[in-house]
Amino acid sequence: MTDLTPPPTVWPSLRATDARALIRFLVDVVGFEETAVYGDDHTVRHCQLSWPLGGGVMLGSAGNRGADDKWALRPGSFGCYVVADDIDDIHARVTAAGAQIIEEPHRTDYGSYGFAILDPEGNRWSFGTYRGEPRKP
């Protein structure tokens, strides 16, 4: 991050058929930190998972607000890019956990090194070293 790059304030959100299992996968395997989880044994009303380098995602159980849900997202339709330094370590963990690799580790023409997976719900996650371009002054 440079002086011109503000801290993350955009938090993607998703819904899951089995939110508790998705939380465990994202925390125990991928490396997110469980910051807050609200709900009961069966339903997650709100969950914040923080990424160690900044930002994170929010998720909840599909249908957790009933038929009048104004934020009814379809499970498995989410995609997210996550900046990471330890690409090979994350790749080894998700591979050992049986995640479906949809793009093996590779270098891009814009200087990133990364890979992509599908999580147990079918969401797409891309991990890479590209931090984005700094804002212009």
Rank of each mutant, 00 (worst) to 15 (best):
V29R: 11
P7C: 09
L26H: 10
P137Y: 08
V27S: 11
A99T: 07
S126P: 05
L4P: 00
R20A: 06
Y38W: 13
D86T: 02
F115N: 07
T9A: 14
T17R: 04
R131G: 04
Q100G: 04
N64R: 13
R107K: 14
H46S: 02
H42M: 09
Y38A: 15
A116V: 06
G122Y: 01
G54C: 01
Q100L: 11
V94D: 00
M58G: 03
D119V: 10
S50G: 09
F127N: 02
P75F: 01
A72H: 09
Y110K: 00
D3S: 10
P8S: 04
S126Y: 14
V83P: 03
Y81K: 03
R93W: 10
A97Y: 05
F25P: 00
G122H: 01
S13D: 09
Q48S: 12
G55D: 07
F25S: 07
R74L: 09
T5K: 14
S112E: 13
V10T: 13
R124S: 06
S13R: 11
T43S: 09
P8W: 12
L59A: 07
F32T: 00
D18Q: 04
M1C: 09
D68L: 07
I87Q: 03
R74I: 04
A72L: 13
V27L: 01
T108R: 13
R45W: 08
V37Q: 08
V82G: 08
F127V: 08
A99K: 10
L49G: 02
I102H: 02
T35M: 12
I90P: 06
E34P: 09
P105Y: 02
A116Y: 04
E121K: 00
R131A: 12
P6I: 04
P8Y: 11
G54S: 10
Q48W: 15
I102Q: 02
A16H: 03
F78G: 01
H46V: 00
F78R: 05
S13N: 12
A36K: 13
T17Y: 04
Y81Q: 02
G122I: 06
F115K: 12
A36P: 04
S126W: 11
G111M: 05
R15M: 01
I117N: 13
A97F: 01
R107S: 12
Y130R: 10
Y81F: 11
T35A: 11
Y81W: 11
I102V: 14
A21S: 15
L22A: 02
G60I: 03
P105E: 05
E103R: 15
V29H: 06
A67V: 14
T9K: 14
A36T: 14
A92E: 11
P105T: 05
Y110R: 02
P134L: 09
V30H: 00
H42V: 10
D109L: 12
F25C: 02
G76E: 01
F78S: 10
T95A: 10
G128F: 13
T9L: 08
W71R: 13
W125E: 08
V30E: 00
H106M: 15
T35E: 13
L22F: 00
